[in-house]
């Protein structure tokens, strides 16, 4: 019971920090919308062309805008020692990482869901593709949160090279893009591709806590 209360407190604290950073999140979503505008203006008013490339563009921009907030994943808690304090409160680093991923998924990725239907209007996407996009984004963003956790814990002591963290995320998110965009092109394979996506999400949800915890330990030792 005490343990569940600690987990609840941890997520409550994350939500409080999230609401105090609300402007940051809004600027990420604004970045997403503006880059979609840029694409629409750059491609011109060809309705058929926009419909063909729309899904791919929306997915890549979602990916890029969610890498914007990656550095904040652990950096603050690591630098002011909160991770050590929570660890001393009886939570292993693996659990801390796991709940950090869950709260990142809830408070950073899910708000993007609201922006997807609006973005789809600009590309004139059919409604079935919008449903697919939302479904694949829910699964795909969980994978992105796991990747973000791994890459930002790798870069805790890296104060100069800011782009390396995004490179790692972009590299490993290629399969996510392939399967998520592929769902629309083949109706018969829908179930297979969704199963593959869920599989990737579960694999990363299994790997991320262990690897991130190992990186955090390493960073604490070399601080």
């Amino acid at each position: 019971m005490v343990f569940l209360k600690k987990i609840f407190l941890f997520i409550k604290r994350e939500s409080q920090i999230f609401f105090s950073n609300f402007v940051d999140l809004c600027s990420n979503i604004l970045f997403f919308f503006l880059s979609i505008f840029v694409f629409v203006f750059a491609l011109g008013a060809d309705e058929q062309l926009l419909r063909t490339v729309g899904l791919g563009i929306i997915w890549s921009l979602l990916l890029l805008s969610s890498t914007l907030s990656l550095r904040k994943f652990y950096e603050e808690d690591f630098n002011n020692g909160v991770i050590t304090i929570i660890h001393m409160g009886g939570m292993s680093y693996e659990l801390i990482v796991f709940f950090k991923i869950i709260s990142h998924f809830l408070f950073v990725q899910i708000p993007f869901l609201a922006s997807i239907p609006i973005a789809s209007v600009f590309f004139n996407l059919p409604i079935i593709e919008v449903y697919n996009l939302i479904l694949t984004f829910i699964i795909g963003s969980l994978i992105l949160s796991c990747l973000g956790s791994i890459s930002s814990s790798m870069n805790l002591l890296n104060k100069t090279n800011f782009s390396i963290g995004s490179i790692i995320v972009l590299l490993f998110s290629i399969p996510v893009i392939i399967f998520s965009v592929g769902i629309n092109n083949s109706d018969s394979n829908f179930n297979n591709l969704i199963n593959l996506l869920i599989g990737i999400a579960l694999i990363f949800l299994g790997i991320a806590p262990w690897s991130s915890a190992a990186f955090i330990r390493l960073a604490l030792r070399n601080k």
């Binding site: 604290r13 105090s20 950073n21 002011n80 020692g81 050590t84």
Partner: peptide
């Protein structure tokens, strides 16, 4: 610790 573990935004 010598750092302050209080969260600045809370």
């Amino acid at each position: 610790m010598d750092q302050n573990t209080s969260t600045k935004k809370l």
